[in-house]
Each structure stands twice: as C-alpha cells, then as structure tokens.
C-alpha cells in the first residue's frame, strides 16, 4: 500500500529514531511512503493553547497539500496526529471557519484525506498475522507496557482511535512479536507534555509515578508512539527505578531483524542495550 507521510518537526530532530524506524518498518512490510510536499509545522500545543484559528490553519495547510496525492496520510507523531484530527473536526463542522481558512490558504479543503497513525495502519491494514510471520527474532523476555498518553486518544470523538480508556492495539503488536505485554493502569495517563521545559518538576513527578507503576506491573521497558512522551520518559525520570523507553516501531524493527536498531538505541538518553543484551536480543 502507499500512503502520504507527514513526519513533522520532532521526527526530524529529537524523535529521529522514530522517523527512521517508521521508515524501516514500512519498507519491510510493504508500505510505500510519499512525503507531503513542502510540509510545515502543525503548530502543536502552542498554537491551540494560545490561538484557536492558528491551530486550525497550520494543520489545514498540510492537509490541503496532501489532498492531491489521494492517499491516506500517515502521521507517526501523536501530537501532530491530534492537531490534524482536531483541525479536521473543526473544518468539517463549521462552514464559516472552513471558508475563512480556505481564504487564508488560498485553496479548497475537500475533507478527503484520512489521517492515520502507524499503529492503526500496522494493526488494521498489515495485520498481526503478517507482522508475526515477518519476525526473525522472537522477543522472548521483553516485557513492555504500552503507553499511549493523551494525544492519540482524546477526545475520543475527534481521534476515533482504539479504545480510549483501555487501548489494545499496541499490546497486540507487541505480543505478535513474541514479547509479553504487561497489563497496567497508566496506558492513557498524561506525562505533562510540553510543560517539560517550563515546569520540569511537574513532568518529573508524573513520569516517576509511571515508572513505578510499570515496574509494579512486571515490565522491563515502556513503548510509546509519541515523541513528546518518549522525550519525557527518556530524559525526565529520576535515575532510581527508571526503565528504558522505546518507540514501538523500534521494537518491531528489532523483531524483524532490520538494520539500524543499534544506531537508534545509541541516541536514547537511557541506554536500552544492557537490557536487550541481557535478554539475548542484541
């Protein structure tokens, strides 16, 4: 299958290993990615927290740019995904706003692009069976907890993605790779998001609590699909009791024996290689 690809700013910087692992996994399972032409930032939390119209117009510029490709649009970053879904929700429900945004951008919005996260595409279009068949290194001993955070799921009527209080798709993917996904109660908790720079102590408090809950659930790592969550888990947890974090696509790449994993793991702040080596997975 072929999809439009919107990497977003994080995936070109602090979330580099997410970008590269999404590309490697897509290539391995037969998803062709076509980058959205001349994309710009979605505005993330800063736009919607301070200026509603800006928060619709910035994603709209990219959705309109993707329209001509007539493909589903893959958006790996949970924050971008949320901003795109939210902009579509407002454009679809408010004709006056839509007209105003079209005027600003100088092109029509036609509501044709389906915005999708790779979790959804891998789970629903590629399927667990095919993923499982592609495994060359079963992830025996890996006990991840799936961490979704806020932005893929809420508000549910906007995101329309997985079960919003107890999502299951990432667990399904992990188990299909031979890992033993642990059940826990923090799947959809908030990590503090963009407060990480301006109110670091709040983020440390939230992340530490999450690490404790993950350990109690018997996990030895945390997997996520959000660069903001990843950065907070990877850099803000107190040293005592912290577990390594992964992008879920890094884990898929590991199980599929794809090239590049070692390079990505080196970029993590909390080095996951000791864990993987002790499990015989590296």
């Amino acid at each position: 299958m072929k999809v439009s690809y919107y990497p977003g700013c994080s995936l070109h910087a602090t979330g580099k290993e997410y970008d590269q692992s999404v590309k490697a996994v897509s290539d391995a399972v037969g998803i062709e990615l076509q980058e959205v032409e001349d994309w710009s930032c979605c505005g993330a939390s800063s736009a919607h927290m301070t200026n509603f119209k800006l928060s619709v117009a910035l994603p709209a510029r990219n959705i309109i740019a993707a329209q001509k490709d007539k493909l589903d649009m893959m958006v790996p970053c949970a924050a971008c995904f949320n901003r795109f879904k939210s902009a579509q929700h407002h454009l679809d429900g408010d004709d006056a706003l839509k007209a105003e945004v079209e005027e600003i951008i100088g092109a029509k919005y036609d509501a044709s692009v389906s915005v999708r996260n790779p979790i959804d595409i891998l789970y629903n279009d590629i399927g667990l069976e095919k993923l499982g068949e592609a495994v060359t290194r079963k992830l025996d001993g890996l006990k991840p907890v799936s961490y979704y955070g806020c932005l893929l799921l809420r508000p549910p009527e906007v995101c329309q993605f997985d079960d919003y209080e107890n999502p299951y798709m990432m667990d399904g993917i992990m188990n299909a790779l031979g890992a033993d996904a642990r059940n826990w109660s923090c799947k959809t908790d908030c990590c503090g998001g963009s407060l990480t720079l301006s109110k670091t102590e709040i983020v440390v408090h939230l992340v530490d609590k999450m690490m404790m809950m993950a350990s109690e659930a018997g996990a030895n790592c945390i997997v996520t699909a959000c660069p903001v969550c990843f950065a907070n888990l990877d850099t803000r947890a107190s040293e005592k009791g912290r577990l390594p974090a992964f992008y879920f696509t890094e884990i898929i790449a590991l199980a599929l024996g794809l090239k590049g994993t070692e390079e990505w793991f080196k970029m993590h702040n909390v080095d996951p290689r000791p864990l993987l080596t002790s499990l015989g997975l590296m």
């Binding site: 939390s45 919607h48 927290m49 955070g149 806020c150 809420r154 508000p155 549910p156 919003y164 959809t188 908030c190 503090g192 998001g193 963009s194 407060l195 109110k199 709040i202």
Partner: peptide, 11 residues
C-alpha cells in the same frame, strides 16, 4: 498555564 491539555477532563 499549567493545564497540559491532556483532555482527560473532557473525556
């Protein structure tokens, strides 16, 4: 300014 926009409340 501390609200993290996590949308748990709305949900």
């Amino acid at each position: 300014w501390l609200c993290a926009s996590c949308e748990t409340c709305v949900t």
